[in-house]
Amino acid sequence: MKAHSLFARTALVLGLVFLYLPILSMIVFSFNNSRLVTVWDAAHSPTLKWYVALLSNEQILRAAWLSIRIAVISASAAVVLGTLAGMALARLGAFRGRMLLAGMTAAPIVMPEVITGLSLLLLFVALEQLIGWPKGVGAVTITLAHITFCMAYVTVVVQSRLAGFDESLEEAAMDLGARPLRVFLRITLPLILPAIASGWLLAFTLSWDDLVITQFVAGPGSSTLPMVIFSKVRFGVTPDVNALATIMVLLVATGIAISTVWMRARQKRRARDLQLAAAANL
């Protein structure tokens, strides 16, 4: 093996260790009996007591349920808006306001979250003064904020998927007399469905995970899960948070495994369809 590729491979392995070591340590210590989190109590471990404590913690469960509802609504709305924006940018060519839309969808991705959070809260305050809505801050304002930064990510995912396809399929359908809505439903939508699915998952994760923007636009009684976790860990480590992290890692790993199997099956089916089509042409 050449020296430089040996170096790169070593770096890759070490980098992956760096990425996974903290996650592994959280999983291991979630089974630790000691309250001191990082001191392994060999006599009484492994134990599931932090999982029991977690699942009987009313505050965490309520926050998790609120976070799930906000994430589902935000991701769904962000997918609709992001798909429209992605299609406009990838398919409409040069339209008026193109630069504006392109700029406004790219900026939220890199914008420091404190700035987005502050500006959204000031907007909600100004709106309430002007038109009397929204009444105070809470779940509604959190959802509106989440839709806004999530749709930027969906736009990028959908736009790059559409950029990879040429427009000839859509043009052919239109030449054959299909109306725009039918072209969208029969041609474009199936093409970008994988992008929409991964955009939804990405949006769900971002919404579920967001702390900084949420803190600005949340009110009393609307604490999301990250807010509850942050207020707990800010004053030191608590073992039940390790249990929570382990459950989340497990859920994500399962989700990824299922989607990988599904994608593989889809690819195989497509390959088989292509073979059949080729055989029919002979």
């Binding site: 996650i23 976790i229 030191g236 994500v252």
Partner: peptide, 20 residues
Amino acid sequence: LIVLPFWTSFLLRVYAWIGL
């Protein structure tokens, strides 16, 4: 493998470093 940690909570991954 590179992207997977990104899908688990950012806050919890930062928190893990306190313990380390």
